[in-house]
Design a protein around this nucleic acid. Sequence first.
DNA 1: ACCTATGTTGATAC
DNA 2: GGTATCAACATAGG
Length: 268
Amino acid sequence: MPELPEVERARALLERAALGRRIEAVDDTDTFVCRPHRPGEIAGALEGATLVSAHRRGKVMWLETDRDAALGLHLGMAGRIVVDDAAEGDPPDGAEARGDGAPRAHPRGWDRFTLTFADGGRLALRDKRRLGRVRLDPDLDGVGPDAAEVSRAVFRAAVGAGRAPLKARIMDQSVIAGVGNLLADETLWRVGLSPHRPAGELADDELDHLRRTLRAATRDAIRRGGVHTGEVIPFRRRGAACPRCGAPMERATLGGRTTWWCSEEQRG
DNA sequence: ACCTATGTTGATAC
DNA sequence: GGTATCAACATAGG
């Protein structure tokens, strides 16, 4: 699930539901999710601290505390943030208990990291695949500028270089941060650019158009609830036709990820 | 049963 | 250094 839009919604949930609360206990016993920390290390740094702010760059989130320690959170491939047993996007409280709402996406058994607050509530990283990650004081050195905020000049210089295919370039988190597989396909389809174009061959006006469209696609996805709400996402399947022009959608593996594009509007 | 697929990233090899 | 490939995890589905 989680690309920039999902992470931003998770960050907003943390901001409105977790700030100001005091941490009483920490479960950091999943050594894969909490690597390279030892069990108890994160707990020792955070127990007794109060959460004061929630931040994001690309797909990396972190919570600052009233101590010297920050709590880094990465949702990986399937992670969600759950506060007081409600995740962002869940049906209203009580719906599940009454049996008239959609079931929660993941049972509590997939909580890989948990903060228990002094008020009795809890915050969890719920992640069935365990590819999410929790770290103290996360290192942001290798994370490029946020895809939703990068300036035109920086975007031109960063994205318009190299001979890797355009799709691989915009998914490179050290180049710009936040774009994943679905947002990349959605954005390139909206612009009408081939995912195979060598990034360094793009003209400045193409890069500007790409940046504008990426920001629009990102905004739309945040507002609508996630990258799966993209216009072309339902057409990423065998036999589908482009919803704009009717030409066949094509598929290939690019940058290690399954890529779909319109055979007509996104010619190389 | 067996094979593929999946929104991520990081280590490794060329 | 930049780029490509595979492995890490745990499912779900054909």
